[in-house]
């Protein structure tokens, strides 16, 4: 099981596999929900991390039912953003560099990052 959800009164607890979700994604997802919940991230059994989300009193009723879903979707989105950033972050930095201080040999720089030009 990569993500096990346990409902609790006023919130829920999720056990996440570190193999699937990286620390940055877990933190980013809990950050995104920090307007609605009080969150805690802590280590669980080896290879897993536990996230506890307790709904804030100020959390609107309409959101209460959806928080769990929202969190899981957010988590996947954040992990995907992280994956894309890993793959393309270097290109992004290259674009900015080329914009303000053009490289002598852009082709070579691209080849080094992408493997082709």
């Amino acid at each position: 099981m990569d993500a096990k959800v346990k409902r609790k009164p006023g919130g829920f607890e999720v056990i996440l596999s570190k193999a699937l979700y990286e620390k940055e994604a877990v933190f980013a997802a809990t950050y995104a929900l920090s307007g609605l919940c009080r969150n805690r991230v802590e280590p669980a059994q080896a290879g897993y991390v536990k996230v506890t989300l307790e709904l804030l009193d100020s959390c609107p009723d309409a959101d209460r039912a959806r928080v769990e879903n929202k969190f899981m979707n957010e988590l996947i989105d954040q992990q995907l953003r992280l994956d894309l950033e890993k793959r393309y972050g270097a290109i992004r930095r290259l674009i900015v560099q080329q914009a303000f201080a053009p490289l002598d040999n852009l082709k070579a720089a691209v080849k080094k990052i992408v493997g082709r030009d």
Binding site: P102, V110, V114, D117
Partner: peptide, 18 residues
């Protein structure tokens, strides 16, 4: 297909935007 010219085009647009 090509990557370098795409990066060059993006860089030009980025510069214009900023």
């Amino acid at each position: 297909t090509a990557v370098t010219p795409v990066i060059d085009l993006l860089a030009t647009k980025y510069r214009t935007k900023r």
